Computed example of a mutant assay.
Amino acid sequence: MIDDTKKKMKRMQSNRESARRSRMRKQKRFEDLTSEVRELQIVNSRIVESVNGREEAMVEIESMNNFLRVEAIEMTCRLRALDLVLQIQDDANAVAFDVRDPLLEPWQLNQQKQPPPPLMAADYGTFLV
């Protein structure tokens, strides 16, 4: 009986030690998983920040792209208008006539003006009332 009791006590001691090691492994595993969760949360927050930054950059790029599209349309319209002006000018140059418009060429106004004739004594009386 004493041997049985010793064996039983030894087995109980061995089981307690095994249970203690199991709890320690379980605690270690829990700490490792907790640490991994913290690391993954940090990585996740960095990824979220990166995605948000890229979304903001994409919005800016889309805005700039829309602006450039509108500007391209405007420039195309201006180019067409200038082409039309050049076409009209070419058509006008094809017709051989010279029209001098003093409003278009104001420097010619001075050349065309002649000084007024001097006032005569007879003309002076017409100004008196």
Rank of each mutant, 00 (worst) to 15 (best):
R38K: 11
F67E: 14
N65Q: 15
N110I: 15
A92G: 02
V43G: 10
R11P: 01
L68H: 01
N65S: 15
K10H: 00
F97P: 02
R38N: 10
T5F: 10
I2F: 11
D4R: 09
N52H: 09
E105S: 14
M9H: 04
K26T: 14
A96M: 06
R23C: 02
L128V: 05
Q87C: 00
K113R: 12
L82E: 08
N15G: 01
L40V: 04
R38L: 09
E62F: 08
I61S: 15
A19T: 02
R11D: 06
V70I: 15
V59Q: 09
D98I: 00
E62A: 03
L119K: 13
P118T: 13
Q27R: 08
E49A: 14
V51I: 15
T126F: 04
K6L: 13
Q87F: 01
Q89P: 02
M64D: 12
V85C: 02
L82R: 02
R25Q: 12
N110Y: 11
D4A: 08
V48N: 06
Q114D: 05
M24S: 15
A96R: 04
A94K: 00
V70F: 10
D83Q: 07
S45G: 00
K28P: 03
I61V: 15
V85R: 02
N65T: 15
N65K: 15
Y124N: 10
E17T: 07
L68D: 04
V99D: 05
P106L: 04
K28W: 01
P102Q: 02
Q13I: 01
V51N: 02
E49Y: 12
M9P: 00
K10R: 03
I2H: 06
A122R: 09
N65W: 11
D83N: 10
S63Y: 06
I47C: 06
D3C: 01
E17D: 08
S14H: 05
T34G: 01
N15Y: 00
E74N: 08
E36P: 06
P118E: 15
V129E: 11
T5K: 12
E62D: 10
S14K: 11
S63F: 06
S63T: 10
I61M: 13
R11H: 01
F97C: 02
S63V: 02
A94C: 00
M12Y: 00
R78V: 01
E60D: 13
A72M: 04
N52V: 11
F127R: 14
R80D: 08
M12R: 10
D101W: 03
D32N: 13
Q114A: 08
G53T: 07
E49D: 12
T126K: 12
E17Q: 09
A57K: 05
R29V: 02
R80Y: 04
K10E: 08
N52F: 08
M1V: 07
L84D: 03
E36L: 03
L68S: 06
K26C: 10
N44R: 07
V95S: 03
Q41K: 10
K28S: 13
T76K: 05
N110H: 12
